[in-house]
Structure formats: C-alpha cells, structure tokens
Amino acid sequence: MPDPNLPQASFANRNKTDPEERLEFSLLSLVGPALRPLPLWPLQHAANMALRSMVHRQPEVFARLRQLGGACFIVDTIDLPFMMAIWPGIDSPRLILVERRNAPPPAIATIRGKLASFLALIEGKKDGDALFFSRELLIEGDMTAVLYLRNAIDGAEIDIARDLSAGSGFLPKMLNGIFHLHCRAMRQVASAVTDCQRAFAAPLERKLAHHEAALEALQIKIAKLGRDVQKAERRRLG
C-alpha cells in the first residue's frame, strides 16, 4: 500500500514505468549485493556527527530552518543503496539512513538525484535551479518546503569535509575515515553505473569486479578496525 502521506508518484510506481530507470536500478541491483554486507551504522554515526557539527557551526542557518518544524525530507540518492530521511527543522536536527528495501518515513517532499549533485548543491558549488532545469534533480511534494530548505542551505557556507572531521577521539576519527572511504567507494560505484549506462556489458563487468574488490577490501578493513577497537577495549579493561 502506498503511504498516503507521501507525495504522489513516489518510489512505488517508478521501477514499473520508466525503462531507463529500470536499467539504472537493475544495474544497481547488480552492485547492491556487494554493498549489502556493509553495515549502515558506521555511516549513520558519521552522518550524525557531521550534522551535529553543521548545527554547531551554522546556528543561524538552523535557526532559519526551525520554520520547517517537524517536516521530514527524503533525499533519495539514486546511486546509493540507501536514502536519507532528514528532519532539519527540529530542535536537534536528525538524519536517518534508510535502506532501500525499507519504507521511508512519511515526508513533506522527496528530492531525487545523484550523490555528487547533492554534495555540490549542499556546498554551494552547483545551482539548485540549474540542476533542476537539467533534470539532474527531481522534486516531488511540497515545493515551498523544498525551496525553503534549498535557500537556507545555499545561504550557509557548508564544507562537508570540515564537518566530517569535526569529531575528536579515536572512534569518531576512525569512523570519519570509514565514511570518507565509503563515500569515495560510493562515488566510484555511482560513476561506474553512469559509465555502464553509456557502454553496456563488457566494461560493466570489469568495473563491477574492480569495485567489488575495492568494497571487499573495505569490508576487511572495517572488520579489522572493529577487531582493533575490541582489542583496545579489552586491553584497557584488562
């Protein structure tokens, strides 16, 4: 059942009707299994801290965003295996990563696009209208809320790298490192998907193999880092 609170024409009917998107999604579904073993929690933690850092650095922006109240925005990064649900207007703004297989919470609007477009938009390196005119961003739902969010963000001077490195201590630093690696891998996957759309099968397999290898290496690294943490904890306690 489609959620009545969601804007019309949300994700439910997308795969069925758009052949190009079906292609995109089938490609992602090839990549998907490789990503799935990666847990979202380290990313979620890094995102929480980055958001906290942004709130700390840009209080006036978030003061403006209070006008949005409890409104939730879904940021659908179509080249990632997850979406983001963001509540920017509440007292302590929240961001939750939602796996694609799970239903997103009811939202006032959904903004769809590639990760690179969102990052450029948030950092003020690309113009939201231009992204929209070229159809790189798709918007569904309450346009007033979206415009409000866009204008407030554009009025800020956000530097994601800086906000990500805002935490202190061993664990945050490690997680930030993972986020960076993760992000980079995601961007590579994203660009691989785009490339594949242009020149189908053979290069696709090569690139996927390459990225699977890269992701596997990441997984090993994360597992090792996790073990290191446990070891360190045990040493400290013992």
Binding site: R14, T17, I139, E140
Partner: peptide, 15 residues
C-alpha cells in the same frame, strides 16, 4: 508562480 502552488508529478516517464 509561488512554490506552494507548484507541483511536479510523474505520468509514466513524463514529468
């Protein structure tokens, strides 16, 4: 064309 009156909807693959 105030934002509150603007809406985009997908009809098949058309916007």
């Amino acid at each position: 064309s105030p934002a509150c009156a603007v809406g985009y909807e997908m009809r098949g693959d058309e916007m």
